[in-house]
């Protein structure tokens, strides 16, 4: 899967939001609030093709958690992203 074009990650104080800014998503007026982990992953894979395993590996490397926990977290996050329509196959 990959991230959809037109979304831009913005930092707001200590928080992060993904904003629909591009022509591809114009009129969506969409904003998705993200925690630090989600923002870290988005930034790492923005514009690239990735899978659950690749994201989980990033989490393992960055936060030193087990692959099992990482995969669980990533699966939940990808469901959220899918629902919000910010990633595509």
């Amino acid at each position: 899967m990959k991230t959809k074009k037109g979304y831009r990650l913005r930092q707001l104080g200590k928080e992060y939001i993904l904003v629909a800014e591009g022509l591809e998503v114009m009129g969506a007026n969409q904003m998705i609030s993200m925690n630090e982990t989600a923002a870290f992953l988005w930034e790492a894979v923005e514009g690239k093709t990735f899978d659950t395993e690749a994201l989980a590996k990033l989490l393992v490397d960055e936060y030193g958690i087990s692959m099992e926990v990482a995969e669980k977290d990533v699966t939940a996050l990808l469901q959220t992203w899918n629902k919000a329509g910010v990633i595509e196959d």
Partner: peptide, 23 residues
């Protein structure tokens, strides 16, 4: 909250966000 206020403001001013410098 900060994010709510940002979102309420965001739809209350205009500009072409696809122009990066403007956004």
């Amino acid at each position: 909250s900060l994010v709510e206020a940002y979102a309420a403001m965001y739809v209350s001013f205009s500009g072409y966000r696809f122009i990066k410098e403007m956004a």
